[in-house]
Design a binder for these strands. Structure first.
Length: 563
RNA sequence: UGACCCAUGGUGUAACUGGUAACACGUCUGAUUUUGGUUCAGAAGAGUCCAGGUUCGAGCCCUGGUGGGUCAACCA
């Protein structure tokens, strides 16, 4: 909630909003705002792209403009239609629409070629016959100017002829390139006669083998912006040094007052998370994960399978903001964003993953009590459910310790605990198998302590989930098998959280009925995910070492308890 | 011995045309008919990279350092 004094203050704006509003008040581009989201279809979108998507579509929406979807498909060696479809699905899932404005840089290959010809005719581009190594060797260094190519002063006619023949497929890949003639002594390496066209003979996923030459990023991006009437071309910080070149091409092309403008913002980095497309592709190809949408992946579809909502992803992006500082964002902020959202939406259920039988010795046999539990304590409209309570219940194995460390608030010999919604029980005895493992816990209960009862306000430190053994045994066994027997050799338990959320398991798990639509659509919240064993995975800095976050968290918990 | 960009609590961001550092996450207490979650109450934690300068006054402006990032792909 905002304090009255805060309402008087103008909402703080990030530097991009300020730049846009300045352009608006300066009357640039006729007061028009038009952005674009320009993915290369060479991989799946990840959480980092979500940051860009929210900005591109968000700015358009905020200032009454439009945002195009444009596939930056200028390199056929890396791109594929599979990615095009996945990208579109993910953007939609996030809640944004480009309406009918779905474009491809490859749509502009003709116009781009024409523009290249114009540059040649104006003496601003030339065909270079040297090898990649030679050209790169002549680039100079950051402190020394580059060398002039021996082909730099070819005649316009020869350049025109050569370039045409390059596109007709007469020359081999790598044998010739088209370069812009700018300044080999520029302190900005990107201005040292950048390559703008190269010969590529592999078919393009959209244009087939129509073209034999393909424009480079720098020669395609700004021009595509220009063709589409983009006013603000928002991209990440590493393109900052490309801006002079972006502007140079726009200057050559400009025929009116309209001009697109590139503004850079900081990329999203997450702690413990691999974000590079290259490495993610590696994980998929090497079979370390089961696909781009593996719940362990930081991809948008991976997050989706992990139970994240579009709202929570958008909220996270809103929380981290846009600056020019290279930031590393804490995953805990992302997790906070889901919890915030899911706490409000997700129905609560009881679940026992590794069952441990508790027998309440002084509770009558054959009696079933109905315990009413709120589906969501934060949202009364979600109603309540009736859960059967009986003499024998299962609790989580982790919730009992025979020799508890200091500050262990769960069940232990002689210790009291509340079974949520039911009674306070006290552990009086344990039964063990031959291996010395605890197989049964015997408790007594205090009949006056039922929630709402006369002694209900008695203080106990812990409250546990439980499931009536009689009502839920089958489900638990199945869950147990699924999680701990059906695991792959690497030890990764790769399970889609939603598999657990089918109405059937929810029903048995919680001992009550849940609306199917709710059950399939609503993931559990973080804590419940942990109970079920797989809220999320944590990437150690090296992609080979994938560890379950749960393990890490349990370890942390134990360290805290043992301290 | 280059160009460009950046520098605010542990982390991410705020601070209107200079007015004396705010918010969120995280951490730590405590409460609760009690999921070690949530909710609620409270606490600790920076004097804004450094040094000068302008000014009555600087996180904001200027100068010079220091530290970090990006750039020398026929990738985007």
């Amino acid at each position: 909630m905002k304090e009255p004094e805060d309402i008087l203050k103008p909402d703080s704006q990030h530097f991009i909003e300020q730049a846009i509003e300045k352009d608006l008040s300066d009357g640039k581009n006729g007061g028009r705002i038009h952005t674009r989201f320009p993915p290369e279809p060479n991989g799946y979108l990840h959480i980092g792209h979500a940051k860009a998507i929210c900005l591109d579509f968000g700015m358009a929406k905020k200032y009454g403009g439009k945002c195009n979807l444009r596939f930056d498909d200028t390199n056929p060696t890396k791109e594929d239609v599979e990615y095009v479809d996945a990208i579109k699905e993910d953007i939609n899932w996030l809640g944004f629409t480009w309406e009918d404005r779905e474009f491809y840089a490859s749509d502009y290959f003709g116009r781009l070629l024409d523009f290249a010809v114009v540059l040649i005719k104006r003496g601003l581009a030339y065909v270079d016959d040297q090898s990649a190594e030679t050209i790169s060797g002549q680039k100079g260094t950051t402190t020394q100017p580059g060398l002039i190519s021996p082909f730099r002063n070819r005649s316009v006619e020869e350049n025109l002829d050569l370039f045409t023949r390059m596109n007709e497929g007469e020359f081999d890949e790598g044998s010739r390139v088209l370069r812009a003639k700018i300044d080999m002594a520029s302190p900005n390496m990107h201005m040292r006669d950048p390559i703008i066209y190269r010969i590529l003979k592999i078919p393009h996923h959209r244009t087939g083998s129509t073209w034999k030459v393909y424009p480079m990023y720098d020669f395609a991006h700004g021009q595509s912006d220009y063709f589409e009437g983009i006013t603000h071309s928002l991209c990440t910080l590493e393109f900052e040094v490309h801006r002079p070149l972006y502007d140079w091409f726009v200057d050559q092309l400009m025929e009116s007052d309209y001009r697109p403008r590139q503004i850079e913002f900081n990329r999203l980095n997450l702690t413990y998370t691999v974000m590079s497309k290259r490495k993610l592709l590696e994980l998929v190809k090497d079979g370390v994960v089961k696909g781009w949408d593996d719940p362990r992946m930081p991809t948008i579809c991976g997050l989706r399978r992990r139970g994240y909502t579009p709202e929570s992803v958008r909220r996270f992006v809103e929380l981290i903001g846009y600056t020019k500082v290279e930031a590393i964002n804490d995953v805990s902020l992302l997790e906070y964003a889901v919890r915030e959202d899911l706490n409000r939406k997700a129905p609560r259920v009881f679940g026992v993953l590794k069952p441990l039988k508790v027998i309440i010795t002084n509770y009558p046999e054959g009696v079933t009590e109905d315990v009413e539990l709120l589906n969501n304590p934060e949202d009364q409209t979600q109603g309540s459910r009736i859960v059967p309570f009986t003499r024998e219940v299962y609790i989580e194995q982790d919730d009992f310790l025979e020799n508890p460390p200091h500050k262990f608030f769960r069940l232990a010999p002689g210790q009291e605990v509340r079974l949520k919604g039911a009674y306070i029980v006290k552990c009086v005895d344990v039964k063990k198998n031959d291996a010395g493992e605890v197989t049964e816990v015997h408790c007594t209960y205090d009949p006056d302590t039922r929630s709402g009862g006369p002694q209900a306000d008695r203080k106990v430190k812990g409250t546990l989930h439980w499931v009536s053994a009689q009502h839920a045994a089958d489900a638990e066994v199945r869950l147990y098998d699924r999680l701990f027997s059906d695991e792959d050799p690497s030890g990764h338990k790769d399970i889609d959280p939603r598999e657990f959320l089918n109405p059937e398991s929810l029903t048995v798990l919680s001992g009550c009925k849940v609306e199917p639509s709710l059950a399939t659509a609503m993931p559990l919240d973080k804590f419940q995910f942990q109970r079920l064993g797989y809220f999320c995975v944590d990437y150690d800095s090296t992609p080979e070492k994938l560890v379950f976050n749960r393990t890490v968290q349990l370890k942390d918990t134990w360290q805290k308890i043992n301290r």
